[in-house]
Design a protein around this nucleic acid. Sequence first.
DNA 1: TATATTTGCTTAATCGATTAAGCAAATATA
DNA 2: TATATTTGCTTAATCGATTAAGCAAATATA
Lengths: 339, 339
Amino acid sequence: MANKKRTTLKDIANVLNISPAAVSKAMHDDSRISDKTKKAVKRIAKELDYQPNHLASALRKGKSNLVGVIVPRTNSNFFSSVLEHMEAVLNKAGYNIIITQSNESFDKECKNIDTLLFTQVDGIIASMANETVDLSHYEKIKSKGIPLILFDRGENDLNVDYVGINDYDSSHMIVEHLVEKGCKRIAHIGGYRRTRIFNNRIKGYVDALKKNDLPIDDSLIIESSLTLEDGRREMERLLQLENRPDAVYVASDYAALGALQILNENEINVPETIRLIGFGNELFTSLVTPSISSIEQHSKDIGRLAAETFLKRVNEPELKQSLNKIILKAELIVRDSSK
Amino acid sequence: MANKKRTTLKDIANVLNISPAAVSKAMHDDSRISDKTKKAVKRIAKELDYQPNHLASALRKGKSNLVGVIVPRTNSNFFSSVLEHMEAVLNKAGYNIIITQSNESFDKECKNIDTLLFTQVDGIIASMANETVDLSHYEKIKSKGIPLILFDRGENDLNVDYVGINDYDSSHMIVEHLVEKGCKRIAHIGGYRRTRIFNNRIKGYVDALKKNDLPIDDSLIIESSLTLEDGRREMERLLQLENRPDAVYVASDYAALGALQILNENEINVPETIRLIGFGNELFTSLVTPSISSIEQHSKDIGRLAAETFLKRVNEPELKQSLNKIILKAELIVRDSSK
DNA sequence: TATATTTGCTTAATCGATTAAGCAAATATA
DNA sequence: TATATTTGCTTAATCGATTAAGCAAATATA
C-alpha cells in the first residue's frame, strides 16, 4: 500500500549516467540522440515502469492535452453516442476528455465553463443548455484564445465552429411525409425561437406548409421547453381546439412522448386520427406503443466531426481566419405513429 | 483573438513590488501576511483577472484535484444520475471529475484506467464492465496507492471501498411480491454469477423461493449478458418450456424490455398470464405498455456516498486500514406488469 | 534597558519535463 | 592537412506556484 515514488527522467538518467535532458530527448526520439542511448533509455524506462509526469510536461509545454466537453445531459442516446465517438477520435490524437453536464441549466453551464478553464483544457466542445440566452460565458472562452466548437445546440451570434444537422430541411422532410399521408392540419410543438436549432425547425415547418399550399395557423404553432410535461400540456391544449390538427410534429422525442401519452389516455387513434412525429430518435421511440416516428441526427458523425474540427483548429492554426460550419443531412425514421 | 498571456503571481508581485512568495501566501490567507498586503494582492488579482495556474500548483503539490470516474455507459438513467450527484459533492470539495465510458468492454476499461492514471487523477471511482473478470488493472490502481472506490458493479476480491444496493434483499422483495400475487413458478433471467451483484441476485432469488416453499427448477434459472436481445432470446426459450413460468424476474430493465416484447408479440397477457419484473428503474419502464415493475437503486445516494467515501480516503488517511462498504436498501416500484 | 518573541516579508529550492544554447569529439569536405 | 559540419551529448533556464528557511523590524517580556 506504500505510495512508492514515481520514476522520473532523473532516475533513468542516474542509472545510465547521462543527463535528464538526454533522457527526455531519447524518449521523444530526437534525431540528435544515438540509437544506442535511445535503446538503453527505453529499456531502463520499462524496467523502472516510467510514466511521464503529465502535469510537468503540460506546465512546461503550456498544453494540457485535455479537451472539455459540455452537454445538456448524458442521459440521452444522442449525447452519449456523440460523446463516445468524440472520445474515440480525440484519444487517438493523444487527448483526453473531461465531460461535464449542464442539466439544461444556464448557471450550471457557466460553472462548467469556469471549471474547464480552471483545469486548463486545450479546447471546449459544447452543446448549449436550453436556458442559455446570455452568451458572455462563451465569449470568455473565445477571448482567451481557446478553441471553441459547438454542436447540435449552437448560436450564430457566437461565430464559432459548429457541427449539426440541417434542422430547416428536417422540418421539410417531416411535413412532406405527413402531407403524403394526407394530413392537412399539421401542428408543431417546438422549442423557443431564441435557440437557433428550434428557430430553424419552426421556419422549416412554416416554409414547408407554404410550399404545400397549406394555410399557416398560429394556434397550431407552440413554443415550449420541450420536456415530457410540456408535451403533455401542449397536446392537451391542441385537443381542446375547435378544429383539431390531424398531425403533430414535436421538436423533441421527450415532448413527443408526453403528447403520445395524452393521445393514448384520450383514446385517440395514432396514427389513424392524429399522426405524430418526434425528433432525436431516442431509444424509447421504438419501444413505446405505438412506436414514434423520429429524426435520426447522426450522433456518431457529429461526435467525430466535432472532434476533428477541434484537432484542425489546434494543428492548423494558419486556418484561424475561416469558420467551419458542418451541416449534416438528417434522416426520417418512419414508425407506427405516422404510418 | 490574440492569445494574451495569463496573469501570474509574478505579475501581481511586480505591481506591488513584493515577492511572488508573498503573493502566493496572501492569496491563501497565510497568517504571516498583513491584512493590508492581502487586500492589495486580492485587489490587483481581480484587476488583472488572475487565474491560478492549476498545472503548476498540481505539480508542486503532487495533487491534481481530479477524480476519474469509469462507468459502463452514461446512457442510462442510473449512471447519469449517479454521475450528476457524485459531481455535485466533489465539485463542492474542490475536485473536478473526468468521466469515461467502458461501453461494457474489458479492453476499453483497461484503457480508461491507463488514461486516468496518466492524467494523474487523485482517485478513481468505478463501476465495472460486464465483461470484466481479470482484476489486474484494478490491482494496478491499488498498488499505486491511489484511492479506488467501486459502486454498483463491484468485486469482493478487490477488497476496496464499495457503495451499492443490497441485491440479495432486492431479490427477496421481488419474490415475496410475486408470491403475494399468487405466482408459483417464478423464472429468473439473471446476469453471470461471476459478477458479484448478479450472483447475489441469483442467491437471493433461490433463497427466497426456498423460504416460500417453492421448488427450485434449474430450467427457470438463466445466466446471460442481460442485453435487450438476451431478454428476447431467453424469454422465447422460457415460452417453449412444457411447464411455462407464471412470472419472470429479469435482473436488468433492458433484458426485461426484450422479454416484454416477446410476450407482447406472442399475445401473452401481462400480468394476467405471466408477471414481469425488471431491475434498475430505467425511464422506459414507466413508458412501455404495460409499464414494467422494477427496482429503484437510489442513484442519487450512491453517487453522493461514493464521492463522500473518496473524500474520506483523501482527507482522513489515518483510516487507511478499515474498509468502507455501504449497502443501501433498494425499493420495489410496482407497475402494471406485476399488478 | 536588554533580551525574547512575533510579524511580515524575502530568498532560494523545489515539483519534472522540456528546450535553447553550447561544447567537445567524430566525421566530412576542401 | 586544415577547416567545416555533424553527432551526441551537457548545462542551465524555464513553465508557475509553493514552501522551508531565514532575516530584519516591530513588539513583547523580563
